[in-house]
């Protein structure tokens, strides 16, 4: 439970909260953790973890070390670590993640891409073996 998490300088602390009854438009840049519960439009650029609560409605592209999503997001998500989609999550957008967890009932519409150690893993479609007829 208290075991060391992967990744250096990881900040588990949530430093910024956008409350349920708050609407925000603009760019958020943070090196600590962020929790969003209200309406956000713009862009989120975070070096820590991003948590999007059930009541949140986010229209933004999100970059973060890891993202936990329980609310609604319209935008692309890019993470160094994992992306978790909870049961109540509604995501419309493309993702590029190192690891992906989708719970039963989560909504996800978009393209998904994986990366490892910060590098894109773009498999060439041509290198894929042809399915035998």
């Amino acid at each position: 439970m208290f075991g060391k998490k992967d990744g250096p300088e990881r900040s588990d602390k949530i430093e910024t909260i956008i409350g349920q009854d708050t609407e925000f438009k603009g760019t958020i840049t943070s090196s600590g953790g962020i929790r969003l519960d209200g309406r956000v439009e713009g862009e989120i650029n975070c070096k820590g973890d991003v948590i999007i609560g059930e009541t949140a409605t986010v229209m933004a592209n999100i970059r973060g070390r890891s993202v936990t999503l329980a609310g609604e997001v319209k935008g692309n998500i890019d993470t160094e670590g994992k992306l978790e989609l909870a049961t109540t999550a509604r995501l419309t957008g493309d993702i590029k993640v190192a690891s992906l967890t989708v719970e039963d009932g989560a909504l996800f519409r978009g393209a998904s891409d994986m990366k490892k150690d910060g590098k894109d893993l773009v498999p060439k479609m041509s290198s894929l073996p042809n399915p035998k007829p």
Partner: peptide, 8 residues
């Protein structure tokens, strides 16, 4: 504040 998406 749950670190999962649950209600605060």
């Amino acid at each position: 504040l749950p670190h999962s998406g649950e209600k605060a």
